[in-house]
Design a protein around this nucleic acid. Structure first.
Lengths: 153, 153
DNA sequence: CATTTAGTTCACTAATTTCTGAACTTTATA
DNA sequence: TATAAAGTTCAGAAATTAGTGAACTAAATG
């Protein structure tokens, strides 16, 4: 196994921790370590020595999640893929989403606790406050990044 | 299925999205919606109608991840569990960790790209900057929360 | 219009993860 | 010292998820 192949496997394992199929992680590893932005389906499939079915499914998964983008080259009917830049802000957006979801879960759960003065309820309310804090702060972070990114251009 | 049982299943599904076993999520749902902080192994097992083995394994998983804590009651040899408060800050810490890991992955990946001036390299460097930004900002967020939490007491 | 190319779909298989239940350990009580 | 209680461990079963490969669609080319 070359050093690069080994790297690609590591990226696969890294993303597996976060719930993606290993193959999707390998595709990201391939895109990160490749020499160009023009990575065709075929390049990816041959490099990763996997079936067309698996590459197709995982590419579409990554597209749906906004982690990669597809682009075409005129006069060429292959599809090309690269890491997505526009997903940077959306990473924080989706974070806000899950924070909001969890807040709702906590609120619903607390509504089952009839004994309103319990220590338990107080503690969970603290957790609720924390998620509310994050819900407010993350969009500020998003703005801060956008400003910074604009200034750099 | 009672409304509460239904809630517990929903929490199970919510956490499954984030890579926990459904049963671990159900345990969290049970702890959130229960009337007290003193939830014994037996309470949990009987409520969730699952095997002792599964409850044991999943409780220990949640303990290891710092999502719940165990406490004892004197004169009683059962173990009791509740949601963990001290994990609030550690949520952000572990976020920093994974950001740092991903930064390393990007850096390693870029080192395979020999064509140093490519557009691709420039774009990935932007992603790298973003993760660097997060790596710096998240600890500030942690501090801000700590201050706020201290003032509230 | 036949052929090639690029990729998708899907039934089946393989791999992995989770759950169960019975045997076991450890500590407490009669 | 037997019995009980509380939880752990682990082999095997069940369920879920991922990957393969062959048949298929759609678009482009000869």
């Amino acid at each position: 196994m070359t050093e690069k192949e080994n790297y690609i496997e590591q990226v696969g394992l890294f993303y597996e921790q976060y719930g993606l199929p290993k193959m999707a992680g390998r595709i990201l590893g391939y895109l990160i370590s490749s020499d160009s932005d023009n990575n065709s389906f075929e390049d990816i499939q041959k490099s990763l020595k996997a079936s067309k079915g698996s590459i197709s499914g995982n590419i579409n998964l990554l597209l749906k999640q906004g982690m990669i983008v597809k682009h075409m080259i005129s006069g060429d009917r292959k599809s090309y893929y690269k890491m997505s830049l526009n997903s940077l802000e959306s990473i924080l957006d989706s974070k806000v989403n899950s924070v909001t979801q969890f807040k709702m879960i906590l609120e619903t759960g607390l509504s089952f606790d009839l004994n309103g003065n319990s220590l338990k309820k107080k503690n969970l309310t603290k957790i609720l406050n924390y998620y509310e804090f994050l819900e407010n702060e993350i969009p500020l972070l998003r703005n801060k990044w956008e400003e910074k990114a604009n200034n750099q251009m």
